[in-house]
Simulated scan of single mutants.
Amino acid sequence: MNPATPAPAAAPSVPPAVPAPALPAVPPTGGPVAVPGAPATDLAHAAVAHDLSPLALFLQADPIVKGVMILLLVASIACWGIMIEKMVTARRLRAEARKLASAATGAATPEGGLAADVIRAGAREWHEGRDPAESRGEYRERMEHAMRAPVIAAFRAAEPGLPLLATIGAVGPFIGLFGTVWGIMNSFSGIAASGDTSLAVVAPGIAEALFATAIGLVAAIPSVMAYNRFTVTFARIRQNAFSSIHELSAGMARRPAPARAARAAE
């Protein structure tokens, strides 16, 4: 080797790679972040405290708010029960009104039900005949009044339940609003006691309070719609039945009754 030639420089030493610290995994569902070293019980408590499902909102609510929710749920169940019963009743009365219309045109004679009761009531007045002091209009009015009585009684029997629908529709939102106001008052009391105004602390209590208003609306809206619907439906069916009764009484008044014919023969 030539002593004048410089020796090659030594290669710089590369420090070993330091692994990056592992970041806490974020669950895809938006739950609490898993922090290394945090106790499992704290994570479970955080998950339960922020559970905003309807069942969790009910279970975590104040006793008075729970009572309001239960009352509104019972009212909603009663509302749907009345609605189903009124649908069956309206269908039955509509069929009886069609039978009366067929009898008024002479197409068919009903053998049973409300339509048969109406015709029997008018037949009793027709068999008695017209009083000599009665005009034909008064005679027809007497038969029509007798035939209307079974229809009025049938629709009076169909009315129970409609006032309850109107009551639930009127007071349901206010009962839910009472539960909401009470729940928000409790939330504000808890905030004042803890001194923490973060959204994580305020949100569960307000959600429980607003849930009571939601249940009140769920009970009230179908009640109002059902009350208006069945009131109009029953009024139309009753008007159709009265129109058929008017035609029946007019036709019966033009025919001589057996009792009247017998008195004339004597």
Results as ranks from 00 to 15, higher is better:
M1H: 07
A4T: 03
A9T: 03
A11E: 07
V14T: 14
P21Q: 05
P21T: 00
P24L: 13
P24R: 10
P27K: 15
P32L: 01
P32W: 01
A38K: 00
D42V: 07
H45Q: 14
H45D: 08
A47N: 07
A49C: 13
H50I: 06
D51W: 15
L57M: 03
I64W: 15
V65Q: 06
V65H: 06
G67R: 12
G67S: 14
A75K: 02
S76Q: 13
A78T: 06
I82V: 13
M87E: 11
T89S: 10
A97Q: 09
S102W: 08
T109A: 08
L114T: 10
A115M: 09
R120I: 00
E125T: 10
E125G: 12
H127D: 04
H127M: 11
E134P: 01
R136K: 04
G137M: 08
Y139L: 02
R142W: 09
M143P: 01
H145W: 05
A149I: 01
P150V: 04
A157C: 02
A157W: 09
A166C: 06
V171L: 15
G176E: 14
T180M: 09
V181D: 01
N186F: 07
G190Q: 15
A192I: 03
A192C: 05
V201W: 01
A203H: 04
I206R: 11
G216T: 09
L217V: 11
M225G: 05
Y227G: 00
F230C: 07
T231F: 07
F234D: 02
S249G: 15
A259M: 10
A262P: 00
A264T: 00
